[in-house]
Design a binder for these strands. Structure first.
Lengths: 135, 135
DNA sequence: ATTAGTGCAAAGGCTTTGCACGATA
DNA sequence: TATCGTGCAAAGCCTTTGCACTAAT
């Protein structure tokens, strides 16, 4: 999801929205307070209220996806319309890795069919210890 | 996880803990306020504070598992040490269906190995519309 | 001028905690 | 009696919202 694609959705882009979009291209996975801290450290004055309003608007317009990893705060990430992925989350350093597995995707579709269930979305999160934290 | 198994973990069982355990065998997936409402409707006076204390203790002792489905409240379910399963969650009636797929389990292990990642736990949630809500 | 965005402070909702009371051993 | 469990109310934390002010068109 780049700026052009966002504009095509008819979403007006303020300076704050642009700044947040830019952050996502750098950091990929962010929560509201991280956005708050990074931007304010850059000298960009923005309130948490505005950040939540932007994130909610982005979520409504399918620009970002909201994740409830096993943390207190919600984590957000840019949606790439051409690609879906799932997550490996390190429970020590909270790093988030991404992976894609077509077999799993297909198996989920089979499971839904077997249960007469219409899939709207799914989330597969694997929690554990990443390579950097193993040593 | 039955009462005997809980006792073997060295967890002392009060009346309230027993009542909550019993609820889980009936309802499988419960949040704190549901437990509160059901028990108090049964004439069992219990406070939300106690419920949260019991649930936290159960979680610490691997008696229940805490799920963050895409709802505001956490959902809890009894752990069955001999069986793991994942969830189909209806976004309309909030019913929770369970499924188990060994292929997916194995694929996750492969993914973890490929990423030098040590799995501690995982959660696979499929959100959508269940059969009852389709009509 | 009209509309949309923003900050601040307050409020909301779930969850946790301090403290005093009650139950249990 | 000493310990543990409990209720109540208050506090905590993330998130949302009301309101007045500012920026943009």
């Amino acid at each position: 999801m780049n700026i052009k694609q966002v504009k095509e959705k008819g979403v007006k882009l303020t300076k704050h929205k642009l700044a947040i979009l830019e952050l996502f291209s750098l950091y990929k996975h962010l929560d509201a307070s991280q956005i708050y801290n990074i931007l304010n450290n850059q000298g960009i004055h923005i309130s948490l209220a505005t950040i939540y309003r932007v994130l909610t608007s982005f979520e409504t317009n399918a620009i970002v996806e909201k994740h409830n990893f096993n943390t207190e705060q919600a984590t957000y990430e840019l949606i790439n319309p051409d690609e879906h992925h799932d997550h490996l989350i390190c429970i020590q350093c909270h790093k988030v890795l991404e992976f894609l597995n077509e077999n799993i995707e297909q198996l989920q579709k089979d499971i839904a069919i077997n249960n007469n269930f219409k899939i709207v979305s799914h989330s597969l999160n694997i929690y554990g210890i990443c390579n950097d934290c193993t040593s």
